[in-house]
Design a protein around this nucleic acid. Structure first.
Lengths: 212, 212
DNA sequence: GCTATAAACTGACTACAGTCAGAAATGAAG
DNA sequence: CTTCATTTCTGACTGTAGTCAGTTTATAGC
């Protein structure tokens, strides 16, 4: 659809041109998928519809995402990264550690609350660290969360807000495991969000060695 | 295939007879599914094959299990219950709490190690406490695990092997969350079993407030 | 420009979980 | 035994994720 080519384009390496096309097409696919997932939901959207909306063939779609669930990761990963980043950035810094942790985790729960059906699938498909058959990479997201948590622990210790001597990275993993499990029970449908948050607080308190 | 009927059978209420047939058919289905899952794996077994092996129509299969994954639960639930029960029963009772916990969890990991592909699916499909579309009930399994853990905590406290004051049920949940997350990373394929066990020990130690 | 090679694309096709309208079996009542 | 109602069963069918043999497009060398 490009009528003319600039001199710069002509001089650019061939690989670059191809790569750019690829990126543009991927962006078109992800954007189409996002709209459809939001509109009709994940299960109700067919890969045919996505391909059609992105103006490509069915087969092409699967050259850009290995599976429909892979596509889901591509669509929502950036939002989740942003949510996590914002949650950590919003902390004042001198609150009690337990409060900081709860602020971060409830922010993330807020994000999931917007669409719990989607959250259920994300939880099952994204967070499950199973690389088999998975293309889209979520290590950046995990780095932000684990790194952020470990950072909070280390700082709290320096400020005397946390007395325990365990490795901050291990504490971070323990905390996240508890958050993850809370999400499971929440999205499993048996408990309300309030109950979940309350329970999570208790679990976090146990991990950091405080009485809730 | 019953050639004769006893007087007792003839006098038995009709509902009983029907119910018995239903149970027998379910047993046949579960048994057929178990064999096929073991032989070929979950993904490679089709519901058609299961139905054929159980000598019923395709549609009938879905009257006894709501989905293929439901069938998986029916097939392996009892084994998992047995594994958990045995793991708790095998404890001597006077070991340090952390050692007891590790014994229980490594026993359960032993079970999963026999077939990690299956474990991956079980972890995703069974343990995920999502009742939506799920028929087979795993509350007995969860009761055994949570109850067993809470019991260990309570006893250790009474014996002076555990000083913390938190609610044993909450501690049990925290411990299980860490076990569950360890399984995720293990079965995710990035780490060996030994690394996983070592890491788990650290996490459990943090939860119960000990230095590993 | 032309040709050859490689990369990207395509949609008809396959495989399979799960459905459903109707058939068969069971049991109750006369 | 003969209805009639209810439960149980069935397999042809449907919808859709993902594949693949063949086609088109982009690039490199001449």
């Amino acid at each position: 659809m490009e009528a003319t080519k600039s001199v710069a384009d002509q001089n650019a390496p061939a690989v670059g041109r191809r790569e750019r096309n690829k990126q543009e097409k991927l962006a078109r696919i992800v954007s189409a998928a996002r709209e459809l997932f939001r509109d009709r939901g994940f299960a109700e959207t067919t890969t045919q519809q996505i391909a059609e909306a992105a103006d490509i063939g069915t087969g092409t779609l699967f050259l850009y995402a290995r599976s429909k669930e892979d596509l889901l990761v591509l669509v929502f990963r950036d939002e989740m990264v942003e949510t996590a980043r914002t949650a950590f950035a919003a902390l004042r810094g001198d609150e009690p550690l337990l409060d900081q942790l709860m602020q971060v985790f409830t922010s993330m729960m807020d994000y999931h609350q917007r669409d719990t059906d989607l959250a259920r699938i994300l939880l099952k498909e994204i967070m499950f660290p199973n690389a088999i058959g998975r293309q889209a990479d979520i290590s950046e997201l995990l780095d932000i969360i684990f790194g952020g948590l470990a950072d909070l622990i280390a700082r709290a210790r320096k400020d005397g807000r946390y007395a325990q001597g365990a490795n901050p990275v291990h504490v971070a993993e323990n905390l996240f495991a508890n958050y993850y499990f809370s999400l499971l029970t929440w999205l499993g449908g048996r408990v309300t969000r309030e109950q979940t948050a309350h329970r999570l607080r208790q679990h976090l308190a146990i991990t950091i060695g405080e009485v809730a």
